[in-house]
Amino acid sequence: MNLAFDHLVIGAASLAEGEAWCEATLGVRPVGGGKHGLMGTHNRLLNLSGPGFPRCYLEIIAIDPDAPPPGRARWFDLDSPALQERLRVEGPGLIHWVARVDGDLDAQLNHWRELGVDAGEAVAASRMTPAGELRWRIALRRDGKRLSSGALPLLIEWGEVHPADGLAGATVNLCKFELSLPQPALLAGLLVETGEAHVHAQLQTPLGLVSLQLMT
């Protein structure tokens, strides 16, 4: 069962700060997005699709101050006091990435468990968009922790619709994604080097090339 790159996750102390970061750093304003009732978060999106990385995007996400507590740890380590402090002091940054499962998410999670990695359970999630309800299944740990400090991706299985399908044509493109892990066999289908956990993404933007390093 192979995996494919799906999207980058930019964490922010507030969605307004994330939007401002996107305009200042990438030269464009993010669009779309919505609210995640399951997690008490909200987001904005930016299409990154290009020849080397089709059907992919950037997600800017923050805790929704108007949402009730979700009753469980939020995804992407957003409840971590240490990460919250870094986002508050240093501003928005790359905190995680998501890989798309080409097949059965439950089978992929079982495979990872056989390799000694517990990525949690498959959970159904959704949010409303102008075109209707967007649905997916995503692997979530009860503690919300990022595996390998965010270098090992969250796994997702989309329904019939993918977010990139409804986004405007990309003016920012993902042109390079470099990844190293102690266990590269976990990510069959993706180019992974063996080594310490590391993520580096390079984007072609209206402001030139922009490099993003994982905020651990």
Rank of each mutant, 00 (worst) to 15 (best):
G40Y: 06
P92L: 09
A122V: 05
N47F: 02
L46N: 02
V89R: 15
S211L: 05
A119Q: 01
H162N: 07
C56A: 14
P68Q: 07
G34Y: 08
G71Y: 12
D66A: 13
W97S: 00
S126C: 09
P184A: 06
G18L: 06
M1L: 11
Y57F: 14
C56I: 02
R72Y: 06
G18T: 06
G34V: 05
A107S: 10
W136I: 00
L46M: 12
P30L: 02
G189W: 03
L191V: 10
D77V: 01
H36N: 05
I63V: 15
I156Y: 00
G93W: 12
V98R: 00
G208C: 08
I95G: 01
P130E: 11
L58C: 09
Q84C: 14
V28D: 06
L87F: 14
I10S: 02
E121A: 14
D64T: 08
C56M: 09
A73G: 08
L186M: 11
A124F: 11
L214V: 13
W21D: 04
E178K: 14
P130M: 10
A125C: 12
D118G: 11
R55P: 02
F53M: 10
D102N: 15
V161N: 10
D165A: 15
D66I: 02
L179V: 13
Q183F: 06
V161G: 05
G33W: 10
V31G: 10
T194K: 14
A188V: 01
E59P: 04
R86P: 04
P163V: 03
G120Y: 00
R44F: 02
F177C: 07
T129F: 09
